[in-house]
Computed example of a mutant assay.
Amino acid sequence: MRINFAVVCLALLLSGCDNPAPEQKGFAGMGTQAQAFTPVVPGRVFSFPADHGAHEGFRIEWWYVTANLKDAQGNDFGVQWTLFRSALNASPEQPGWANQTIWLGHAAVTSASVHHAAERYARGGVGQAGVRVAPFEAWIDDWRFVSQASDPLGDMQLSAKDKNFSYQLRLISSRPLVLQGDHGFSQKSEQGQASYYYSQPFFQASGTLQIDGKTYTVNGPAWLDREWSSQPLTANQTGWDWFSLHLDDGAHVMLYRMRQKEGAPYLTGTWIGADGQTETLHAGQIKLTPQDAAKVAGRSMPVRWSIGIPEKNLQITLDAINPNAWMGLRIPYWEGPVRLSGSQGGRGYLEMTGY
């Protein structure tokens, strides 16, 4: 199959081909209307392992893994593995070549001096990409996120490769999943746009990665995000800044700031205690300020941030390990590992879209 067909279909989807309008509809078309698709509403009761799988009727979803790794010499590395599922229409999925689902994979590795990113596109219905629940397996071509045990997310193998990099990691966790937002209903705007969203922030990763022909043995914390939605942004929202943070005291923090063409950004997050207990963070509880910027791919990107959560006695500075962690793909964005300093140390990941 020629991959260009998938590229064209995905581009039409993300540009809002079903509802053309003269103005841009948010980042990557995610602010376009999607009335025919299943809406995201409060009160969903999550069911596992079924919700680890694909959700027919919703417009877009993703399986998103990031890992903050070190080698024996203390050098920092970051790894990203993502599988996106995009529905071209809301009708029941068809088998074989009649299938109307496009799959997109992103993979990247980052060090202090190097950042490599790659992408894959695939048709649904023909076995080139997909997600199975039992045993759990998410894949696109030979990029795989696969369960190694009866617990679908307890013991995982994660792998990807491209011409300049590859990695093979084992991810282990015995900790429970975290439902983001209001019991998994994660609001993205005052107008009610939302996703269903849960995470596994307690993974511990170990394995090897190869960058430009050199192999490193690495280990460190990893984070899985699972989201699905039909219209996650409003037309006024141009992109987001997303943070996943592993604090040295065992707590974890997820924050996101949805930027708008007009008005203040929509800001929220989740505090995940070392014991796994969660607390939703609202805008008034968060002080999030971009600091130093770097010129990346012709854009000014805030690669240093100040984050304060006074109620948790947290005041930290976040610095990109590699300011040039630009994902120069068909849908471009910035994504890379960060280090934390201040009232606590730690590591994490930052994603910035729509710049």
Rank of each mutant, 00 (worst) to 15 (best):
G74A: 07
G74C: 12
G74D: 15
G74E: 12
N75R: 15
N75G: 12
D76E: 15
G78Y: 04
G78H: 01
V79W: 03
Q80Y: 00
Q80A: 00
W81V: 03
W81K: 04
T82I: 03
F84M: 01
F84N: 05
F84G: 00
R85N: 05
S86P: 04
L88H: 03
N89F: 08
N89G: 13
S91D: 14
P92F: 06
P92Y: 05
P92T: 01
E93F: 12
Q94Y: 07
Q94A: 13
W97K: 07
W97D: 14
A98Q: 13
N99M: 09
N99Q: 08
Q100W: 00
Q100F: 01
Q100C: 10
T101Q: 10
I102S: 01
I102W: 12
I102T: 10
W103P: 01
W103N: 00
L104N: 07
G105Q: 02
H106P: 07
A107P: 00
A108K: 02
V109P: 08
S111I: 02
A112C: 13
S113D: 15
S113Q: 15
S113A: 10
S113R: 08
H115G: 10
H115K: 11
H116P: 14
A117P: 11
A118D: 13
E119S: 02
E119Q: 06
R120A: 09
R120N: 08
Y121F: 13
R123I: 06
R123P: 10
R123C: 11
G124P: 09
G124D: 05
G125M: 05
G125W: 01
G125C: 03
V126C: 14
V126W: 04
G127D: 02
G127H: 03
G127R: 01
G130K: 05
R132P: 01
R132C: 13
R132N: 14
V133D: 09
A134V: 07
A134T: 07
P135I: 00
F136W: 06
E137A: 09
E137I: 03
A138N: 09
A138D: 05
W139G: 00
W139F: 09
I140G: 06
D141T: 02
D141Y: 02
D142W: 02
D142P: 04
D142M: 03
W143C: 04
F145P: 13
F145N: 06
V146P: 12
V146T: 14
S147A: 15
S147Y: 11
S147H: 08
Q148W: 06
Q148V: 04
Q148N: 14
A149G: 05
A149I: 02
S150H: 14
D151K: 11
L153Q: 13
D155H: 10
M156W: 06
Q157W: 03
Q157E: 15
L158Y: 01
S159K: 04
S159L: 09
S159A: 10
K161F: 13
K161L: 05
K163E: 13
K163V: 11
F165W: 11
Y167F: 11
Y167W: 00
Q168T: 11
L169C: 07
I172W: 14
S173T: 08
S173R: 11
S173V: 02
S174H: 15
S174P: 15
R175E: 15
R175V: 06
P176R: 06
P176E: 14
L177A: 10
L177K: 07
L177R: 05
L177I: 09
V178K: 07
L179I: 07
L179Y: 02
